[in-house]
Design a protein around this nucleic acid. Structure first.
Lengths: 259, 259
DNA sequence: GCGCTGGCTTGATCAGGGTCAATCCACGGC
DNA sequence: GCCGTGGATTGACCCTGATCAAGCCAGCGC
């Protein structure tokens, strides 16, 4: 939530740079574009100034105009259910594209909210369609990025259906760590930008269960956590737990979820 | 699973027809294409002969070449988890597109299997990309169809996270009914093409719970079900239950899931 | 007819995790 | 300094739905 020391400064410096120089270019849309086509893409992309924590990037029901790419910071997407409760659909880190849900109906099906000070690139959908038509590599990459989000949702679906609470939290934490590694960031030490309540909501657990599990993981030497600061002590054990093999954890009672 | 009387005959007759004449054209890719561009699309689409129940359309890990549109019948998509258990990701009815998960990595992330005698159209992805580049309407419609699947997954996610077992089954049955209505089919009387086990797996419930809930819904006069034959008697009550207001159902104990 | 098989139903029991409630802790205002 | 607030933690209790187990029913081979 706070922006400790240098990280933000670096981002501000990057703001003036192009897609070609962007640290995320391998994950983001320019990935497979040749040098000659880069200016066409860059013409379509708009940069934003950083948003403070808790700001709404787009709201459920609002008209769809552009896709957004997270450049630094993080977002959550939430949707309000018919019974009035909120559902956290996902957390979005640098390199992620948000706004795809809106393409079908022309209006957003969820609300995107910053969890900390966050910078995004805005890409008007019309513009990207035009450029994509002329640059086949971009077209393909756009499909790929969309599909990536799709796969991530399906993995989350499997988590929600089959897994016990401890596995769910382990999967979540492992995924956070893995995504940080993919971004070239320290994977074992991180600041949770979302509240316990967001985590619980996302995983289909109540806040008390999340809290208890953090304490238990800590007792078992998997990690240390104080408020938002998380340090993973035993990544392998966390990964094993996430994979469903709750080994040393609690004796040997192997329990296959849903037979 | 069986093909009772005339329905299949009609489908065979349709097989020879074009996208333009297809009953699904409003839901499928041709939706927003002008007459002049239709032949370009049709050139890319291949028709298949009907597949029997239990056949694999594509398997997890196999290379990605084409998208598939369900024309008649139904499919399920399943993915094998790290612990070896299967997860049913979705059921796909006429008009649905399957295979999108594979665009990101170039190989399928799930297996698609027919639940009954089923006809699909195959669309090589290369071909559709080419045509889409020259026909902006198709391009946009392709995005829309992709996004539609995306939204459906997100809705299912919310179901798995927040809802109690009875709500989950009610949501599932209501959705089946609604999708039939959208296809112009009788919405209140239908044959479940998937087993109890598939339903339970999809909803994150064990088979016994699904069975008990069917019995309970029957006792409450919501529906009748014998084997695969389902008749919805009180759609509104089912819809209320799906929306989280378990009214008459069991007295008045209002229980908000997850606060 | 008979028995087998596989899918489905129903009952009894148990525990994972939700609910309720008290407390703690960090932070900010005054 | 003091208190208020909101997020987080911990404990006691109990309900929903999973587990274990027995039976039912339809279809099929012989």
């Amino acid at each position: 939530m706070t922006d400790p020391s240098g990280e933000t400064v670096v981002d501000i410096a990057r703001l003036r740079r192009s897609c070609g120089a962007c640290a995320l270019s391998q994950l983001c849309l320019p990935a497979t574009i040749g040098h000659e086509d880069m200016p066409k893409l860059e013409a379509a992309v708009r940069q934003h100034r950083p948003l403070d924590a808790g700001r709404t990037l787009f709201a459920e029901g609002s008209p769809f105009n552009e896709l957004h790419v997270v450049r630094s910071g993080s977002l959550k997407t939430v949707s309000v259910q018919s019974d009035g409760t909120e559902q956290v659909l996902g957390f979005h880190l640098p390199g992620d594209v948000v706004g795809l849900d809106a393409v079908a109906e022309g209006q957003h099906r969820c609300t995107a909210m910053t969890l900390e000070r966050t910078t995004v690139c805005d890409i008007p959908f019309n513009a990207i369609e035009d450029v994509a038509r002329r640059v086949p590599g971009l077209q393909r990459q756009l499909y790929r990025v969309i599909s990536r989000e799709f796969v991530r949702d399906q993995e989350h679906l499997a988590t929600m259906g089959r897994k016990q609470a401890p596995e769910r939290l382990a999967i979540f934490l492992k995924s956070l760590s893995d995504r940080r590694r993919a971004l070239g960031l320290e994977p074992l030490e991180l600041t949770l930008s979302m509240s316990r309540s967001d985590i619980g909501n996302y995983l289909g657990l109540v806040i008390e269960t999340v809290s208890r599990l953090f304490s238990r993981f800590q007792d078992e030497g998997l990690l240390t956590v104080q408020r938002r600061a998380l340090r993973i002590l035993d990544y392998d054990a966390l990964a094993r737990l996430a994979a469903g093999m709750n080994d040393a954890t609690e004796g040997s009672r192997q329990r296959s979820p849903l037979r």
